[in-house]
Design a protein around this nucleic acid. Structure first.
Lengths: 155, 155
DNA sequence: TTCAAAATGTTTAAGCTTGAAATAAATAAA
DNA sequence: TTTATTTATTTCAAGCTTAAACATTTTGAA
């Protein structure tokens, strides 16, 4: 870790933050674009679709529409369209909520679970390949700092 | 397959990489969404528009359409639409390239430069505020590792 | 009870983005 | 020269996303 002059003024830190943001955005976009491209080329899936199925796969009991849109930070209307398609293809189904006739739970069908498991495995291998240039120290260091950042952003 | 320390099997590192990617994506999306929201609310600007003007501001001599789309990793057609609007609003102009009648340089007008400078200052303050939770060590550590990552992604 | 406010989802209109096709100009090959 | 290929850009159709408007149900206060 390099040392800083104790009298380092405030302005450079602000410039460094901007630099950091541009680098963060670039790395994230590079990965996201490539994942999106492969998902489309290999499976004819969109990234939001993968994300919705991923959220559903983590919660076998099902999620409400609003819970999905909140988790993925995507509009409600968007989730409606994606889930409609999943249902039409037999990968998900809507289940009534006993206590609340407005709401409904969305669950993966067994077929949806099977297909997602396959795709998720390939997806994980892609990420592993793309981030392969990082060693264990890089990974831990970034996770640590990203946790700081996200915490301060959400707090 | 290469040998590994008995206490460090291959799987955990792969899982860590996936965890890192999810955290990277989350932090990046949080910041990007908020910037987009503020840009729209305060200036009625889109983020791609800001990005195009930013690229042009860095190169006073002007950029070709294809150079813009390459820098921003955005489709050519998209750049056409954005530049059309900038030109219509008097913030940018198209200049013929002497040697090549297919191409044209896009430059910011003086008005475009002035307006962008104002917005860029506000934008930088937003970023500074959002990343304010990070100390100098966090920033340096992340920049270092993001450079590793981007280099390995592009290489 | 009764009615206003809040919550859950869906629909719709508008804007954004992409990829493919089209146009036009420059370059290379025969 | 003539033809084919490559390069630069625009146009267009299709899909994605959002925000706002809408319909329905639940909650809570008078």
């Amino acid at each position: 870790m390099e040392q800083r002059k104790s009298d380092a003024p405030a302005e450079p830190l602000s410039k460094e933050r901007l630099r950091l943001w541009l680098k963060l955005l670039k790395a994230s976009s590079l990965i996201e674009d490539e994942l999106r491209r492969r998902l489309r080329a290999d499976f004819d899936w969109t990234l939001p679709r993968f994300d919705v199925m991923s959220a559903l796969a983590r919660t076998p009991d099902g999620l409400r529409m609003s819970e999905i849109s909140k988790q993925l930070r995507v509009s409600n209307g968007n989730v409606t369209v994606i889930v409609d398609k999943l249902v039409k293809e037999g990968l998900a189904l809507r289940v009534a909520v006993p206590d609340d006739r407005r709401a409904q739970l969305v669950q993966l069908t067994p077929q949806g679970q099977t297909i997602f498991a396959e795709h998720a495995g390939v997806h994980e291998a892609w990420v592993d390949e793309m981030l392969g240039g990082l060693n264990a120290d890089d990974i831990d260091g970034m996770i640590l700092r990203l946790d700081h950042l996200t915490k301060s952003l959400e707090g």
